[in-house]
């Protein structure tokens, strides 16, 4: 599988490393080159420095032939925007966005953007473990 990851923060670098270790092809995009320091030496993918809200940058990342795009920058709205751009302009088969705000995540989920909400996931984990 070829996966494009937008945002090389803690989650982005974690996902990029994990997919790379599983033998998948990975391109990770971030506005700041120094964020790629978080990637381990055995990371086999590519880092691209650029603003992924610019269609040309997604093009350069190889979006036309990717199987999945994961938008995981620190900003909910940027992720929502990039996810929709991938779907609408590039017909990317699988698109997901990290959305911290639970209300915003559920609205976009109902609008067909697959939104992963760390707040809800984390909250559920705490509640579940406490109940054990």
């Amino acid at each position: 599988m070829f996966v494009i990851i937008i945002g090389c923060g803690r989650l982005g670098s974690y996902l990029a490393t994990a997919f790379s270790e599983q033998g998948h092809e990975v391109v990770i995009v971030d506005r700041h080159e120094n964020t790629f320091n978080k990637l381990p030496d055995h990371f086999t993918g590519f880092g691209i420095t650029g603003d992924a809200t610019e269609p040309a940058v997604l093009d350069e990342a190889g979006i036309a032939r990717c199987d999945a795009l994961l938008a995981v920058t620190e900003n909910d709205n940027t992720n929502i925007f990039i996810a929709q751009m991938a779907r609408e302009l590039f017909q990317t088969p699988k698109v997901m966005a990290r959305v911290f705000d639970p209300a915003r995540a559920s609205v976009y989920d109902s609008l067909g953007i697959e939104a992963i909400c760390p707040t809800m996931l984390g909250g559920a984990a705490f509640i579940e473990r406490l109940a054990r």
Binding site: I80, I82, Q84
Partner: peptide, 8 residues
């Protein structure tokens, strides 16, 4: 001033 914010 942010395009993504305006879209949302």
């Amino acid at each position: 001033l942010n395009d993504a914010d305006n879209l949302v």
